[in-house]
Simulated assay, not measured.
Amino acid sequence: MTASLNVSASTDNHKFNLALESGDRDSASGKSMQMWADLIKEKSDGRMKVNIFYQGELGGQQELFDQLVKGNIHMMLTWPQTSYDERLGVNYIPYLTLGWEDALAAYGENGWLKNILGPVYADIGLKYFGPYPEGFGGIATKGRYATSFEDAQGMKVRSQPVFPLPQTMQAMGFQAVPIDWAEVYTSIQTGVVDGDSSNVIYWDYEYFRDQLDYFVHSKHNFSSYAMLMNNEAWEELDAEDQNIIASAAQAVIDKQFVDAKTEDAKWIKAAQDAGMEYIVPTTEQMAAWVKRVRAEVWPMAEESLGKELMDELRANASVPQ
């Protein structure tokens, strides 16, 4: 038995390219991807090496996702683009989960939402290791802020160019302007938009704090990246090497689920200390936004996701307080 195991043990050498759509090497996501690369190298005794490319080094969000699907990039941490399959919009359904406990139950290792997403990624040729959660997104603006549909009138905010995030901003009363991450700072600086939306406070504080005054924690989306690999590159590996990459990914994901809430709280305090006003809508204000957004955006989502999938989301969605 021992001889047989030794014969079947992997001796192949591999080099992979791993890209981040956002985050430099010192960001939490950058450090997490370095952890993934280090674990892969360690577990394979140096046979497998991962080259990491940080935000902007290889292109924008859609371009990187295209290259991942084609196999020119082997691995990626990304907000998935819905251009290949609108069902990936599941990841962005607004007000699906309303608190940390519900989010962790949905996105965790055996979570109901993770079990929905895996097969969808497989259909477009991607291996899904799991989510990389950051926390609940908000709306960061300068000059003024809004905590209601009425107050948001006339305010332009940047939205990630992926369904249904722009539609969510519109339903909340804002004018949504889809802009790629690399162009956000200039867009705020020149007044193309009044702020950014749907990110956790870290990104707005770290990259735009000299431009922004307020962060309203609307919690309309649970900000969660996906850890992915091109499926052809994955299938070329033997079982041992697949296990090395998958187990290393799971270690990163497990750590991030522990760290995410603490990390978010840390950056909320840092932003406040730096002079950014942090605003939590009242229960009544949140309930009004939840009601309006679910009424307007969820039917749109059903058109692309299908009734069966949307019914499953409705059955598992958080109940407003």
Results as ranks from 00 to 15, higher is better:
residue 306 G to T: 13
residue 206 E to I: 09
residue 69 V to A: 06
residue 200 V to D: 04
residue 215 F to K: 08
residue 25 R to S: 15
residue 142 K to D: 09
residue 239 A to E: 11
residue 304 S to Q: 14
residue 108 G to S: 08
residue 257 F to C: 00
residue 293 V to Y: 00
residue 227 M to I: 11
residue 138 G to H: 01
residue 290 V to Q: 11
residue 239 A to G: 10
residue 57 E to L: 05
residue 155 M to F: 06
residue 122 A to W: 13
residue 303 E to Y: 10
residue 96 L to E: 02
residue 316 N to H: 12
residue 275 G to M: 03
residue 65 F to T: 01
residue 58 L to A: 00
residue 260 A to V: 10
residue 191 G to I: 04
residue 319 V to L: 13
residue 169 M to V: 05
residue 131 P to H: 09
residue 32 S to D: 14
residue 184 V to L: 08
residue 318 S to Q: 04
residue 174 F to E: 02
residue 125 G to S: 04
residue 138 G to P: 03
residue 182 A to L: 10
residue 20 L to C: 06
residue 281 P to F: 12
residue 182 A to I: 07
residue 97 T to S: 13
residue 147 T to V: 06
residue 8 S to V: 11
residue 213 D to L: 05
residue 203 W to D: 00
residue 274 A to P: 01
residue 262 T to C: 07
residue 234 W to V: 02
residue 223 S to C: 13
residue 106 A to D: 03
residue 161 P to W: 01
residue 269 K to E: 15
residue 102 D to E: 13
residue 268 I to Y: 12
residue 224 S to Y: 03
residue 289 W to Q: 07
residue 263 E to N: 09
residue 186 T to R: 12
residue 265 A to K: 15
residue 81 Q to D: 13
residue 310 M to T: 01
residue 143 G to T: 01
residue 286 M to E: 06
residue 178 P to R: 01
residue 225 Y to H: 15
residue 151 D to A: 14
residue 234 W to H: 07
residue 161 P to D: 06
residue 102 D to Q: 06
residue 167 Q to V: 04
residue 165 L to E: 08
residue 270 A to T: 14
residue 141 T to V: 01
residue 116 I to K: 10
residue 203 W to F: 09
